[in-house]
Simulated assay, not measured.
Amino acid sequence: MTEERPPIEQLRRGKYEKPSASPDKGNCFRLTRVGDWIGVQDDKEYTTTPVDKRTTLGFTIAELEAFLISAKAGEFDHLIA
């Protein structure tokens, strides 16, 4: 069972991956997985901010999956148009 709160310190130290379709200018995000949690970090902070100071968001796999399904369905298109 997933903990109620994300393990932010563990997520901060995760091995982050950048999406292959993202631009090289640092205008993207990176993801990592620690147990049942997905960590999200800003690509700009990843290269300029010490690991223990990076802004890190934690989501359950189910939460991230629900977001991706909604994004693929176009639910957020009005925000970027």
Rank of each mutant, 00 (worst) to 15 (best):
M1K: 04
E3Y: 06
P6Q: 03
P6A: 05
P6G: 02
P6T: 00
P7Q: 01
P7F: 00
I8S: 06
E9L: 06
Q10L: 07
L11G: 08
L11V: 10
R12T: 06
R12P: 01
R13D: 07
R13A: 01
Y16M: 11
E17S: 08
E17C: 04
E17H: 05
E17K: 07
K18C: 10
K18P: 04
K18L: 07
P19F: 08
P19W: 08
A21E: 03
A21M: 02
A21K: 05
S22E: 05
P23G: 15
D24Y: 14
D24H: 15
K25F: 12
K25A: 13
G26T: 11
G26F: 11
G26Y: 08
N27A: 14
N27Y: 13
C28V: 10
C28M: 05
F29H: 04
F29Q: 04
R30T: 13
R30F: 11
L31E: 09
T32F: 06
T32H: 09
R33L: 09
V34I: 07
G35T: 02
G35V: 01
D36W: 13
W37A: 01
W37T: 01
I38E: 03
V40D: 02
Q41L: 06
Q41S: 09
Q41D: 07
D42W: 09
D42K: 06
D43N: 09
D43Q: 10
D43G: 08
K44C: 04
K44Y: 08
K44D: 03
K44E: 08
E45I: 03
T47V: 13
T47P: 08
T47Y: 11
T48D: 15
T48G: 14
T48Q: 14
T49G: 06
P50A: 03
P50T: 02
D52F: 13
K53I: 11
R54H: 04
T55F: 10
T55C: 13
T56V: 09
L57E: 00
L57K: 00
G58C: 03
G58D: 04
G58N: 06
G58I: 03
F59I: 00
F59A: 00
F59M: 00
I61R: 00
I61Y: 01
A62M: 07
A62Y: 06
A62W: 07
A62F: 09
L64V: 00
E65G: 01
A66D: 00
A66I: 00
F67V: 01
F67R: 01
L68H: 08
A71E: 03
A71C: 02
K72T: 13
K72P: 12
K72C: 14
K72N: 15
A73R: 15
G74P: 09
E75I: 10
E75Q: 12
F76E: 14
D77Q: 07
H78N: 15
H78E: 14
H78P: 14
I80Q: 12
A81S: 15
A81V: 15
